[in-house]
């Protein structure tokens, strides 16, 4: 399953931009829908298991890793996560968190999701890099949430709650936003719609 590409073509084509955008749009819609409903179950969860609502935060993290492993261009994770955040913000209900909680956090999450691909210089695309991307994105999410910009600033990075949130966010980011997205990408590739992308072409010819 591991794919290591010798020489990557790093220039964005129009199709890369549009496909990354549509992934972002679809994700942004999911973010916004999630915004509307998540608070009630997670607040309940918080009351029982401190910090465990980090487990669900991957629902705001997956756009970056997914777009990155599909279009495989520099900045794809940042771009997709940012656009998704803007969509979440624009379509109304998304403004739940205001411009900071929707858009700035999206930028942070995207930048963290991107790091691993910069490290491997956009050449290694496998379940491991995907997982790490989701994991780091979760880490970015943690940093933001407990910083002065986030809504959990009143708690503190290193409190029991904070550390437990850190662990659950990392797990959730790695598993849902990372590994699961790798399999989603494989499934999309199998339908043949990615035939203009390197990621969709590792198949027998027809």
């Amino acid at each position: 399953m591991s794919e290591t590409i010798a020489k990557a073509n790093l220039r964005w084509r129009v199709v890369d931009i549009v496909v990354a955008s549509i992934i972002a749009v679809a994700s942004g819609v999911i973010f916004a829908g999630w915004d509307l409903i998540y608070k009630i179950p997670t607040t309940a969860l918080d009351a029982v298991l401190p910090g465990f609502n980090g487990l669900v935060c991957a629902f705001w993290l997956f756009a970056g890793p997914l777009a990155a492993i599909i279009v495989r261009k520099p900045g794809a994770a940042i771009y997709a996560e940012l656009i998704a955040a803007c969509i979440e913000y624009i379509i109304g209900a998304g403004g739940v968190f205001g411009i900071s909680g929707s858009i700035i956090i999206g930028l942070v999450q995207g930048v963290f999701a991107e790091i691993i691909f910069i490290v491997v210089r956009y050449r290694v695309w496998n379940p491991l890099t995907a997982t790490l991307s989701g994991l780091l994105s979760g880490f970015g999410n943690y940093l933001f949430e407990f910083s002065p910009f986030g809504s959990r600033v009143g708690i503190g990075f290193f409190s029991t709650y904070g550390l437990s949130y850190l662990v659950t966010t990392l797990i959730s980011g790695a598993v849902i936003a990372g590994l699961l997205m790798w399999f989603v990408q494989r499934a999309i590739a199998a339908t043949g719609v990615l035939d203009r992308f390197e990621s969709g072409r590792a198949k027998a010819l027809v």
Partner: peptide
């Protein structure tokens, strides 16, 4: 128009009340 905001705000209130400094 901002009803989801208030739900989110109440949720944050509960979390911080339980775990805040």
């Amino acid at each position: 128009r901002t009803w989801p905001v208030w739900i989110a705000a109440v949720g944050s209130f509960v979390t911080i009340a339980l775990y805040g400094r």
